[in-house]
Amino acid sequence: MDALKSAGRALIRSPSLAKQSWGGGGRHRKLPENWTDTRETLLEGMLFSLKYLGMTLVEQPKGEELSAAAIKRIVATAKASGKKLQKVTLKVSPRGIILTDNLTNQLIENVSIYRISYCTADKMHDKVFAYIAQSQHNQSLECHAFLCTKRKMAQAVTLTVAQAFKVAFEFWQVSKEEKEKRDKASQEGGDVLGARQDCTPPLKSLVATGNLLDLEETAKAPLSTVSANTTNMDEVPRPQALSGSSVVWELDDGLDEAFSRLAQSRTNPQVLDTGLTAQDMHYAQCLSPVDWDKPDSSGTEQDDLFSF
């Protein structure tokens, strides 16, 4: 819950932080000083300027060897085509990944977070970031790969997607708890209302004896509580940590079903599988986004697919 609360507080303090972009060759504004600060901008989305290598189908939802083989196929196909790589912007948030063309600003792909089953910074092609997700059109699994400016960037994108998945799962947990509370309150309110109706004398007997209905007592009954809980029953509950912020979080049926399955089948359902080692994760978390744009010590960066 700490990640969720800190993310909400950060967004309320400075929503404009989320509009910064990394990996864009110096076009961005001043960047936060450390990885923790940038992680807090996830709610509205972190932007990464990358190059799209392509996509291939895979048979399993996750796995280092599986993704490595898929990336190898994608890279080989991209090299064989001889075409310049498409420059894209990857927007990562707890909602998922939005992929747009840098030149036309046209939407290429919009992947809900619950469809993503794996992401990684490839070991062999260490400047490549990739994720595996279920197609929104059918049940097939797709591996999408992107060329980053350097290994640090690939690791940073991988960690960002993993963190977005974690925050999304926490949102789901909060929403589920809130819905259970509202359902319980609604049920209790309905029981109270039913009890009051059972003990209320029939209207005919009131008229016969000349008694008047006590409207004041009726007004004191917990009807307002019942209506408050039943009027918006169809509205999706939102985490309290975000009250007053500009973010509107809505959970669709697909996300609810997917996270429910994860909660039942996995020990740590909030953790998205990645190909990063503990050492890689520690190294990337210690980086400032400013470091992502620094040239690798191995030599001059080449803006070309064939540089790796």
Rank of each mutant, 00 (worst) to 15 (best):
127 K>N: 00
236 V>K: 06
125 H>P: 00
46 M>K: 08
290 V>I: 15
182 R>M: 10
300 T>P: 10
163 Q>V: 10
106 Q>M: 08
133 A>S: 13
50 L>K: 01
69 A>D: 10
169 F>N: 02
5 K>D: 06
292 W>E: 13
40 E>D: 14
169 F>G: 03
296 D>T: 08
89 T>M: 14
306 F>W: 05
261 R>Y: 05
199 C>E: 12
202 P>F: 08
256 D>E: 05
221 A>S: 09
290 V>R: 07
79 K>C: 01
129 F>D: 00
171 F>M: 08
250 E>V: 03
120 T>C: 02
288 S>T: 07
217 E>D: 13
178 E>G: 14
160 T>Y: 12
292 W>P: 09
266 R>W: 03
285 Q>F: 10
204 K>V: 05
219 A>V: 13
6 S>A: 13
157 V>K: 00
102 N>Q: 01
6 S>D: 10
96 G>K: 07
96 G>I: 02
61 P>I: 14
69 A>M: 12
192 V>W: 02
211 N>R: 12
38 T>D: 06
64 E>H: 15
240 Q>E: 11
19 K>Y: 13
21 S>N: 15
259 F>Q: 08
175 S>M: 02
52 Y>M: 11
91 K>P: 00
307 S>N: 13
84 K>G: 13
220 K>N: 12
177 E>V: 15
67 S>Y: 00
215 L>Q: 06
277 T>N: 02
186 S>P: 09
198 D>F: 11
179 K>H: 11
60 Q>A: 09
264 Q>P: 02
219 A>H: 13
232 N>M: 04
30 K>C: 11
5 K>Q: 04
214 D>W: 06
154 A>P: 02
143 C>K: 01
282 H>P: 03
150 K>H: 03
16 S>L: 13
163 Q>F: 12
192 V>P: 07
18 A>D: 11
239 P>M: 06
307 S>I: 06
14 S>Q: 04
266 R>C: 01
302 Q>N: 04
145 A>W: 00
288 S>K: 05
130 A>T: 01
38 T>H: 11
224 S>F: 08
275 G>E: 05
123 K>I: 14
84 K>Y: 03
273 D>F: 05
39 R>T: 10
295 P>L: 14
226 V>M: 09
243 S>P: 12
57 L>S: 04
215 L>T: 14
114 Y>G: 02
101 D>T: 03
181 K>R: 15
213 L>F: 04
76 A>V: 12
14 S>I: 00
53 L>D: 00
44 E>P: 03
157 V>I: 00
40 E>T: 13
264 Q>W: 05
291 D>Y: 15
69 A>Y: 07
207 V>A: 15
241 A>S: 15
216 E>M: 05
293 D>L: 08
9 R>M: 04
298 S>P: 04
307 S>K: 14
274 T>Y: 05
234 D>Y: 14
133 A>M: 01
40 E>W: 02
48 F>W: 10
158 T>R: 03
103 L>P: 06
57 L>H: 06
116 I>N: 00
280 D>Y: 06
77 T>Y: 11
70 A>P: 01
193 L>S: 05
218 T>D: 04
178 E>M: 15
112 S>A: 08
247 V>Y: 11
247 V>T: 14
253 D>H: 09
31 L>E: 06
286 C>I: 09
105 N>E: 11
99 L>N: 04
110 N>L: 07
133 A>Q: 12
262 L>K: 03
169 F>V: 05
206 L>W: 09
37 D>Q: 12
294 K>S: 08
286 C>Y: 13
120 T>V: 03
56 T>N: 01
95 R>M: 03
70 A>Y: 02
302 Q>C: 10
67 S>C: 14
265 S>K: 09
191 D>L: 06
62 K>M: 04
153 M>G: 15
114 Y>T: 02
292 W>R: 12
244 G>W: 07
292 W>C: 09
134 Q>E: 09
62 K>H: 01
277 T>I: 06
8 G>H: 06
206 L>H: 06
115 R>A: 04
15 P>R: 13
95 R>E: 02
282 H>S: 11
114 Y>E: 02
185 A>K: 06
102 N>K: 01
141 L>T: 10
132 I>K: 01
277 T>A: 14
9 R>G: 13
266 R>M: 03
232 N>Q: 06
132 I>N: 02
287 L>F: 15
119 C>Y: 02
163 Q>H: 15
164 A>Y: 07
115 R>K: 06
252 D>P: 10
156 A>W: 14
172 W>G: 03
243 S>R: 12
271 V>C: 10
196 R>S: 11
166 K>H: 11
24 G>W: 11
61 P>K: 02
126 D>K: 00
293 D>P: 03
256 D>I: 02
285 Q>P: 04
252 D>M: 05
260 S>K: 01
